[in-house]
Write a protein that binds this DNA or RNA. Structure first.
Lengths: 107, 107
DNA sequence: TTCGATTATTCCTTGACAGGAATATTCCTT
DNA sequence: AAGGAATATTCCTGTCAAGGAATAATCGAA
């Protein structure tokens, strides 16, 4: 996982675009319509998404269909894997120890 | 999943902080040392992470231990779940159709 | 080849945010 | 109470990215 990908997703309009694209490829115009965003901004946002390979283009005549690419999401998934132990194991020795300290102090 | 959480993670120093905190709670000073970042910046970044609840504080005397909270990562995981079908099923009718169109045109 | 539709690009302005420096705050120790 | 260590906050500055407006580029159809 890398900050650049996260940064691309962090912008609200782009995030929404990804949500829309989940259901299938869309053209620039369709995205602009659904998002209530002007076409040039949509093109710019798509460019950003494309640079981090979240999206790919499929030209079809006049139109350009944008489609999600699975890789970045797989990467996020792999990254999250490295955190799974955090919420699956309730051991967390030091954390418990510190919490205990805190509770004692709050008495 | 929400853009605010992604935005917090998208900043490179904060991303690195999260990586370091994966192994357990750390104080502000320890983070500053390991990241080669000045203490005030570390405090500021931690504030951002705290606001989106990626991190919680555990005061211990003079020091403040910062610790990852599992919820945001669980949320990311849930969000990714909604994409899993995308890379698990290779059907994707429309996508295939468009790719086919493209290939034909490139002849 | 000209027109219309679709999409991309450029230029400009504005706002948000990260870093630096200085200072304030908190809490322990003596 | 005073001093020192750890951390937070404030103020300032520069940079970057998003939005608006205008325009360019691309492509099919007549």
């Amino acid at each position: 996982m890398n900050p650049a990908t996260l940064s691309a997703l962090a912008e609200p309009n782009r995030f929404q675009m990804v949500e829309l694209l989940r259901e299938g490829p869309l053209t620039v115009g369709e995205l602009a319509d659904r998002l209530q965003v002007r076409q040039p901004q949509v093109s710019k946002h798509l460019k950003v998404l494309q640079e981090v390979e979240i999206v790919e283009v499929i030209p079809s005549a006049n139109r350009r269909y944008y489609k999600l690419r699975p890789e970045p999401f797989r990467q996020m998934d792999d990254w999250l894997d490295t955190f799974r132990s955090m919420w699956e194991e309730q051991l967390d020795r030091l954390g418990d120890y510190l919490k205990q300290l805190q509770e004692e102090q709050n008495k």
